[in-house]
Nucleic acid binder design. Structure first.
Lengths: 158, 158
DNA sequence: CTATATTAGTTTGATATTTAATGATTCGAT
DNA sequence: ATCGAATCATTAAATATCAAACTAATATAG
């Protein structure tokens, strides 16, 4: 049983970069979302509210896509937001398969209140990096994100 | 209700960099762990097996810390690994609070089989970046990760 | 030595998350 | 017009995840 991994430089680079990527992502997420605890919101719930706040009423599948989540998951998260009266489900008239999500007054008030705090948390979270470094990081992440995208074709041809 | 966010450059940079960071992390994780499906392993279960594989028997709290998870969560993940006979819980003699986790023969065989595949997936996942770019990314992520670390003091003074 | 604090692990209760299966609805090709 | 494919949402079953409360064991202060 090896005590630590010994591979080629290539391999060690990839593994160690991945670990740092994940840790950065998790620590930044934790730090920037800590303020949500006061409002009893989860990161996912905040994501839905923010999406509706900035893009207006959308159907669940759209919101799921924007937040990189499954529609099944969206059902659960929206259930919990609806229980608290922060969003409303509205069945579409034109296409009755769709359910359009709307912020309620309470939901709008809440997200309008916390979004500025969220922005400031983000600025603070990234403040260890200069503007140039943030730009570099964004560029590198963009490349990585694109090249690892899921193969979106769902050819069901059995 | 705003249609999109208009803030200072500072604010837009932080928000957009964060989105790219999260997407990169999620797409790379999904791509590099896809091979686990064949073995019916979750990412968390793989994380535990890998930790034990490379560091040898450890107590649950140690494994939890290495994987950035809570001990409560570790209980669940280890339960599932134990059910499948991949790890064993061994109560420590010296300090009976501790439970040391050991890979079983089956667990060792499994992780030894899939770890090389995992490494190759990682190399492939990062292959869009040059060695220099990976180094830059690692450096930036390291800074971010460190500066956003949780304040570890848990002063319980009510 | 005893009272208090700390630590490891579990349990509980809640939310999140995915995959697979299902129901309802719409679309599309013939 | 109709039958089959595709799409949206939900449900079901399983795992993950955390905070908080709890148990058991150890350590430490007085």
């Amino acid at each position: 049983m090896p005590i630590s991994f010994h591979g080629s430089k290539n391999e060690k680079d990839a593994l160690s970069t991945y670990v740092k990527l994940v840790r950065a992502c998790e620590t930044v997420t934790a730090a920037t979302h800590r303020h949500l605890v006061d409002k009893k919101l989860t990161v996912s719930q905040f994501g839905v509210l923010e999406t509706l706040y900035h893009l207006g009423p959308l159907c669940q599948a759209e919101v799921a896509k924007k937040n990189l989540k499954s529609t099944a998951n969206m059902t659960t998260v929206v259930d919990n937001l609806e229980k608290r009266g922060l969003v409303e489900r509205v069945r579409s008239r034109e296409d009755r398969r769709y359910i359009t999500l709307h912020l309620t007054d309470a939901g709008l008030q809440l997200i309008a209140e916390i979004f500025p705090v969220h922005v400031q948390s983000m600025v603070k979270g990234f403040s260890v990096l200069t503007a140039d470094e943030q730009q570099q990081l964004a560029e590198l992440c963009k490349k990585l994100g694109i090249s690892n995208q899921i193969n979106c074709s769902r050819r069901s041809r059995p």
